[in-house]
């Protein structure tokens, strides 16, 4: 069975053209497969510059990788026929970060909902169109009478983002790539938008790739997590394991820096010393310069993924004793929904 969407050994290099000496490797030898069944929520977490948005754009077909392949139902994106491309466009939807910029301020918000219906010929009559729109709005908890006919500036950021989720839902996609969907929304409204995403996953069987820098929300909605550092995977697997017992020093730093809403649980300021951003060596582990556990071999060669648990991988020589796993098999270790819930209980 071929995966719904798969990236194999992709590398993306920006710049470095004929007249430029500087090039940036945004993503390096990254592989991930998203199965069509069962529907999953996978979080991709990393800081700015970790390559997570590049990954999103490649998954959406908005960017072509410098090396490697993107496969939609087993077929390279570059080789899709017009009709296959059409179904790819429908199956894979996106929710972008900024709910303020995706709207054209001159149009009423209805426009973002009617456009995909027209484009994909989803409705045969005005009435059918209206029903579709109202259903989609209801599923994200919005009342059509309070939403339709308004202009973008009359709605809150949370409402706008939920309309974006409703828009994605209209097309009944099989995968939604959500790139930082709640980072620009108030904390009090975040929960609602994330709840919507989880609901789509559970009720409509839509898989979600949730790209974020926020570990807390990732933990709340995902089963599996991929922690990215500087274009490579640092740690990946069952989110319960990764969050509760992080194995990679970078994941440990990341989790230690999360501001807990509890004055008695201070964030881990010991990590401060190790965390001055540095441009690491070229061949070795990218986290080398910031790593408190750096060893000589870390500078020489980049660590492969070591399988530390049944459902987790860490790219760190501290776990050298564990068997290593080829990068393209990463997703095979991911847990399904039921398993994730029981993992730590």
């Amino acid at each position: 069975m071929s995966a719904l969407l798969e990236v194999q050994h992709i590398t993306k290099v920006f710049g470095g053209g004929l007249f430029s000496r500087n090039s940036t490797t945004a993503l390096e030898d990254f592989s991930l497969a998203i199965a069509s069944e069962p529907p999953s929520i996978t979080a991709v977490v990393g800081e700015s510059g970790s390559g997570k948005t590049t990954l999103a754009r490649i998954l959406l077909g908005l960017e072509t990788p410098t090396e490697g392949q993107v496969l939609y139902q087993g077929k390279d994106l570059r080789e899709l026929s017009t009709s296959e491309w059409h179904s790819f466009r429908r199956d894979v939807q996106v929710v972008f970060q900024d709910p303020f910029e995706v709207y054209n301020p001159f149009y009423k918000i209805d426009h973002v909902l009617t456009t995909p219906i027209a484009k994909f010929g989803l409705a045969k009559s005005q009435q059918e169109r209206q029903t579709l729109i109202e259903e989609a709005l209801h599923s994200v908890g919005l009342r059509p009478e309070n939403t339709l006919g308004r202009r973008p500036h009359q709605l809150s950021g949370g409402q706008r983002q939920r309309i974006m989720v409703a828009r994605a839902l209209l097309l009944r996609p099989r995968l939604i790539v959500a790139d930082e969907p709640v980072s620009m929304i108030d904390a009090s409204l975040r929960a609602t938008v994330l709840g919507n995403l989880r609901q789509l996953n559970e009720e409509f069987g839509i898989s979600v790739v949730y790209i974020t820098h926020d570990l807390t929300t990732a933990y709340q909605i995902s089963e599996n997590i991929i922690v990215m550092y500087s274009g490579s995977v640092a740690e990946a697997g069952d989110i319960n394991l990764v969050v509760k017992q992080p194995q990679h020093p970078y994941t440990q730093l990341l989790i230690g820096s999360v501001p807990q809403p509890d004055p008695d649980r201070r964030w881990n300021t010991e990590a401060m010393a190790a965390s001055t951003a540095a441009t690491g060596g070229s061949n070795g582990c990218k986290f080398f310069a910031r790593c408190p556990h750096a060893m000589s071999q870390c500078a020489d060669s980049a660590p492969p993924l070591f399988q530390t648990d049944a459902h987790r991988l860490a790219a760190c020589y501290l776990h050298e004793a564990s068997p290593s796993l080829p990068a393209e098999e990463m997703a095979s270790l991911f847990v399904g929904r039921g398993a994730s819930a029981n993992a730590l209980s």
Partner: peptide, 29 residues
């Protein structure tokens, strides 16, 4: 305020915070 918010709004604000400890139902205010 974090251990015992008194105003109902403050309480909802603090209760709807996602945590790294337990997975909750995701509900906003």
């Amino acid at each position: 305020i974090f251990s015992r918010p008194l105003h109902p709004y403050a309480r909802l604000l603090i209760e709807c915070l996602p945590s790294l400890e337990v997975k909750d139902t995701l509900e906003g205010i």
